[in-house]
């Protein structure tokens, strides 16, 4: 188990079924010390391999699938309790009927968030990471065939509530959207800079509570821009609805951009085998 946050990587469940872990992963190669290797001279092997290369490979695969099908995929990240799921529910309610929607929910345990999403009528698949502290690209890749993704749709991936680990793992999304709520500290962008650096958009949530708090909005935004000068910021409240139009407009424009990208060479041919992506009626 990881010392910093207690993470581990065994036992991933997608829709309650084990997708990775003790019974599904390739067993680690056992020590194999036969007589032939005893006393053999050692040699140096140069590798220079990126530790995240495997994840990035799956992320590229996901991204090609999304872009070839005009799907806007977003990775929602935040600390626990920032209001990601409420934001998502309100967003889905606003977009329902206008564009095909789907959600992947990541949590260590329980199906609670997926249930909240399904109550809006939108399909949601729950990935339980067990002891894992983040979603990775392979988990997303494995869950995609279990959903009915529609061309020209939007896929929201709600990551495990954690401002640290999900920063390093590309899932193939068009953008990471970081949610920071005003009930947290305004210095979170400096405390967790990797995440704010990785995000394209920051949603400052629960702004309806500002009159009751000492949260310094200008300072929080300045800190976020120190880490990432290009980050876009909207002040919103998923509960009261304030600022939501700006977020919905951002989504609309991103969706248009994804759909106006010409398919990359070879993508069209590769996509024919993907039967589960259904055309919009």
């Amino acid at each position: 188990m990881c010392l910093t946050c207690g993470c581990g990587t065994n036992d991933v469940f997608i829709r309650g079924k084990q997708a990775r872990g003790a019974s599904t992963a390739a067993a680690p190669m056992r020590i194999h010390l036969d007589a032939a290797t005893q006393g053999e001279a050692s040699r140096i092997i140069k590798l220079e391999q990126d530790i995240l290369a495997k994840n990035d490979g799956f992320a590229d695969k996901n991204r090609s699938l999304f872009s070839a099908n005009g799907i806007l995929a977003l990775n929602l990240v935040s600390s626990p309790g920032s209001g990601k799921t409420t934001l998502l529910v309100k967003t889905l309610e606003a977009l329902k009927g206008k564009v095909p929607l789907a959600v992947i929910e990541g949590d260590q345990q329980t199906d609670n968030d997926a249930e909240r999403i399904r109550a809006t009528g939108v399909e949601a698949i729950q990935i339980n990471t067990g002891k894992g502290c983040h979603l990775d690209a392979q988990m997303v890749e494995r869950s995609l065939p279990q959903m009915s993704l529609h061309k020209q749709g939007m896929l929201f991936i709600e990551n495990v509530g954690n401002l640290v680990c999900p920063a390093a793992f590309d899932l193939g999304e068009a953008a990471k959207v970081v949610v920071l709520s005003v009930t947290e500290g305004e210095d979170k962008p400096l405390k967790y800079p990797d995440m704010f650096k990785a995000a394209k958009l920051m949603l400052l949530n629960k702004c309806d509570l500002l009159p009751y708090l000492t949260f310094d909005v200008a300072r929080a935004e300045e800190y976020a821009r120190r880490v990432n000068p290009d980050i876009q910021i909207f002040r919103i409240s998923a509960t009261s609805g304030e600022g939501m139009p700006a977020w919905l407009e951002w989504l609309r424009l991103k969706h248009i951009t994804i759909n106006s990208l010409p398919p990359q060479a070879g993508e069209g041919a590769g996509m024919r085998g993907v039967g589960y992506i259904q055309p919009v009626a």
Partner: peptide, 21 residues
């Protein structure tokens, strides 16, 4: 942070190399 999964990736890189080399 996610050092556990990074360490798992290191193990896979080592095992791949051992098969090839």
């Amino acid at each position: 942070m996610h050092e556990m999964s990074l360490a798992e990736n290191v193990r896979e890189i080592i095992e791949d190399a051992s098969r090839k080399q």
